[in-house]
Design a protein around this nucleic acid. Structure first.
Lengths: 277, 277
DNA sequence: GTGTGATTAGAATATTCATTCCATTTTCGA
DNA sequence: TCGAAAATGGAATGAATATTCTAATCACAC
């Protein structure tokens, strides 16, 4: 009976089960086959449920966990749950890697390590982006921009780089763009001319810049079609928006790379240009 | 209060939460934000755990579930668990489908194809970045920034988003930053106070913005230590620079995503902050 | 056939958990 | 400033759960 099974991965557990399968008693073999065939049931079920589905008494399940070196069913269940978590969050690997590198923080301070950390975080942000953005939203957004006379861009604070980038690209493509940057006065004045014939692209992440939260509802109320890029459906620029792009897992302001939103606005702009032909 | 929430999908639940968010009480709003941000915790945790992580009493969690029309926490949890289950199985299928759509990205004018094209382009840009940037340059750059009293940032035109992002992060970390944006006059005047005790970070890609090409040599001549981020060693901001980061294969202006330089400046700023401790 | 040791099933138990209830606080309108 | 209604936090409760224990069963050697 092994010790220290606590930090076992699902794949390791599968291997361990397969290895010991022959040495187990009849009932325990039966359970071994069941848990390998129905890992999700084990992850989410109770002892009683697993017992019933596999056709054994509950105590046998616990004995099985013991035989594998776990303290009990609950402990073994953690391994099966980790599999579910890994499947749904693509950034899981990256996060693990980051934690590792943070452990050895001495090495982690070297600039090269910092760079590779941000690179891998950016990689997973891109994967998440392509998974979470759907065709429907992209097409709706493109349609809004295509009909717009002027395109107003609202992105302040940490989101300002995204707004300026989108402004740059759209202008290169010959669109009329108003960048709401608050220079020389209030953004209210800058946005005063926006109508239902225009469009607004708003970008904001936590902590949401106050001016953004204030101005956005006003433009919505005036009937300006709106595309929001934010990190939560509950953000102040989500409600009332015609289209919302939700980019999850944005790190805290000082650490975020803006890679995902930059990529998204780029795609929006070029997609608009291609669709217009 | 709605009925028949039993057969609700996770996405529907998200929508429902977002919709009612405003109408909820303060505590309940707080919980709404937490559960949307940490769906996995809700799926696998107990009431007590979720309560502790979200900083509310357990009873509030149950009240939240009731407010959404569920009979209790357990019932709501089923929806969050369904998300995990859905995440594991179809991952192969989804990946295949995505690859397929990427294949015909050449034909693809459809917005989704455009996005996936930019995503994969960004991915390879990141790989190139981590390969082409060397420890020596990173450390030299960090040393320059660490000694600087004020940090001047020069990035105009298409590089302006990178400069504003770096400015934002450095300021968050408590550094003194002067962003040379030319607002309200000439950038010459804005950079007039720069001395050998300061530092300059210049960012420029083809076609090099004229003002950048003009101002850069002046500051170099005044002895200001300089870090350049550009796409060629022959660029106007390469000669005379203390450190040059060369980022190759930058696409034409309208198509570039700025992912690589954004990531690089981020790493510079954080690396500087970590090294300063 | 019989005795021994392992294996098992099911009941008993102790723990954990979700839920409810109530006293207190907060909010909002008069 | 006061009063009513809503919201909140925390303890109490009862259900559900994992685990342990014990008596019965089984396999197998002699």
């Amino acid at each position: 009976m092994n010790k220290a099974q606590g930090a076992m991965s699902y794949d390791e557990l599968r291997g361990a089960i397969a290895q010991r399968h022959r040495a187990l008693s009849g009932r325990l073999q039966q359970i071994a086959e069941f848990v390998l065939d129905h890992p999700t049931d084990v992850a989410l079920g109770t002892v009683a449920e697993v017992a019933q589905r596999s056709g054994v008494p509950p105590s046998a399940i616990v004995r099985f966990a013991h035989a594998l070196g776990f303290g009990g069913f609950t402990e073994m269940q953690q391994v099966f749950r980790s599999r579910l978590v890994a499947g749904v969050a693509p950034s899981y690997k990256a996060r693990l890697a980051r934690m590792k590198s943070e452990e050895k923080s001495v090495l982690g301070r070297k600039p090269a390590a910092v760079l590779s950390r941000f690179v891998s975080e950016a990689q997973s942000a891109l994967v998440t982006l392509s998974q979470s953005v759907h065709t429907r939203e992209l097409e709706a957004a493109t349609a809004i921009l295509a009909k717009a006379r002027d395109i107003y861009l609202l992105g302040l604070g940490g989101s300002f780089p995204v707004a300026t980038h989108l402004a740059y690209v759209l202008r290169k493509l010959g669109r009329r763009v108003v960048l709401l940057d608050g220079t020389g006065g209030s953004i209210h004045e800058q946005s005063h001319a926006a109508t239902v014939d225009d469009a607004l692209v708003a970008i904001s992440f936590r902590n949401y810049y106050p001016d953004t939260a204030r101005l956005f509802p006003e433009l919505v109320a005036r009937g300006v079609p709106t595309i929001s890029i934010t990190d939560s459906l509950l953000s102040p620029i989500a409600e009332g928006a015609s289209v919302v792009f939700e980019i999850q897992d944005m790190p805290e302001p000082a650490l975020r790379t803006l890679v995902a939103p930059m990529c998204l606005v780029q795609a929006l702009a070029i997609g608009l240009d291609l669709a217009a032909d």
